[in-house]
Write a protein that binds this DNA or RNA. Structure first.
Length: 391
DNA sequence: TCTGGGGTCCTAGGACCC
DNA sequence: TCTGGGGTCCTAGGACCC
């Protein structure tokens, strides 16, 4: 049976939610990500009105303010966006048992074999667009194709409120009509590399052997490019992700070089990551610390111990020790980040649980604090050091 | 323009073992 | 003595995505 996938992308999602919730923002440029004066913010989403001024995602907010000073600027209400996202996603499940959500604002729907129930894929796509609009007030762009990879590219071609279909058998032709920068998975670095190696179009890539592409771009990228331009690249969401990580990072308003102040930030981040691990009921033996210096060079250090992280003190002690080992004293730090890698389900058997090192009690206390915070978000219980964020 | 925060995956080199 | 080869695990860095 011919396979058919839809990729559905919400148009300028965060900005559209703001316009939906605030009628006075409608028809105006709306920029989500920060407000004028936020020194190091970047644009998260720009409404289509703002895009006319050249504002786009990932642009420094300072630049956006220069380009479009009269825009409505908001920092963003991520809980609200998440709520709207769920409303939209629940519409999709009416049309197929197989919905793969890949981020807050996009999902794949496997429409293979749903023809008898709902009609042909193009008709289904139109129904989905109409139902999303009716139930949530938001518009989406849809791509239809025989593979998820192609559907993903197709949905981006006629935004906003778009609908683009790549017919069965038209995969290669479609890819060869595409400019290189539209090839999903080719970012700035690979694009530069392609250009410097003399590739200007997908057709140029198509002419070369897989062996040559591997030699120039490495095994993984070479193979990817070879298949992509033929419309043969498959995205695999089938297997469960092997490793999972939970991270938290922060960019300081101004660079820091006092160790005590940086370590205080590390403590806040450690607590955040640890609480999120509690919430997901997972544990980890590996912590990672990331330092971005004033000149934007970024380094990281990680350590895996035999025992899982027991509590916030333990987590902070591990991160602090990594910081002390890695930090080049005196250098200005613009960002500090903390992560737990290779997290696993806490219900899995773990040898160390047979012993109690006295940390078990602390962990139970933290769990209690965490559940209090969940019941009443206004209660914020923090370590003395974090409250005293001054000296 | 002076570059967020949350992730995943890939690679290369070193340690260690047989 | 100064030197093989394969496999696996860990770490640091980088590319990419939304």
């Amino acid at each position: 049976m011919d396979k058919v996938f839809a990729h559905i992308d919400l148009d300028a999602f965060f900005a559209s939610v703001e316009q939906l919730d605030h009628p006075d923002y409608r028809g105006k440029p709306v920029i989500v990500g920060g407000i004028p004066g936020d020194r190091r913010a970047v644009v998260s989403t720009a409404s289509y009105e703002a895009r006319k001024y050249g504002v786009h995602s990932a642009m420094p907010l300072v630049t956006a303010v220069k380009l479009c000073p009269n825009a409505v600027f908001v920092r963003g209400n991520y809980a609200r966006y998440s709520e709207k996202s769920q409303e939209v996603m629940s519409v999709f499940s009416n049309y197929s048992p197989t919905v793969i959500q890949i981020s807050v604002d996009e999902a794949f729907i496997d429409l293979t074999g749903t023809e008898r129930l709902f009609g042909n894929p193009l008709g289904v796509a139109k129904k989905i667009k109409a139902e999303v609009k009716e139930k949530t007030g938001l518009t989406v762009s849809v791509g239809l194709a025989p593979t998820m990879y192609l559907a993903k590219i197709a949905s981006g071609l006629n935004k906003p409120d778009g609908l683009t279909e790549i017919p069965q058998g038209g995969e290669e032709k479609f890819m060869l009509s595409l400019p290189l920068e539209k090839v999903w998975g080719v970012g700035t670095k690979t694009l530069e590399h392609l250009k410097s190696a003399g590739f200007r179009t997908t057709m140029d890539v198509h002419e070369k052997s897989i062996g040559l592409l591997k030699t120039i771009f490495g095994n993984s990228t070479g193979t990817f490019l070879y298949n992509a331009v033929r419309g043969n690249h498959e995205m695999d969401f089938g297997s469960e992700p092997k490793s999972h990580s939970i991270s938290s990072e922060t960019t300081f308003d101004t660079d820091l070089n006092e160790e005590y102040a940086i370590e205080t930030a590390i403590m806040t981040l450690s607590m955040d990551v640890l609480f999120r691990m509690h919430k997901e009921n997972v544990r980890s033996k590996t912590v990672m610390l990331k330092i971005r210096y004033e000149d934007f060079t970024t380094v990281s250090i990680q350590e895996t111990q035999d025992r899982s992280i027991m509590n916030a003190d333990d987590m902070f002690a591990r991160c602090r020790s990594l910081f002390q080992r890695k930090y080049e004293k005196g250098r200005g730090v613009r960002l500090i980040g903390v992560a737990c890698c290779n997290v696993e389900d806490r219900n899995l058997p773990d040898q160390q649980d047979l012993f109690d090192f006295g940390d078990g009690k602390k962990a139970r206390v933290e769990n209690a604090i965490y559940s209090m915070e969940q019941k009443n978000p206004k209660i914020k219980i923090k370590k003395a050091r974090v409250l005293d964020s001054g000296s």
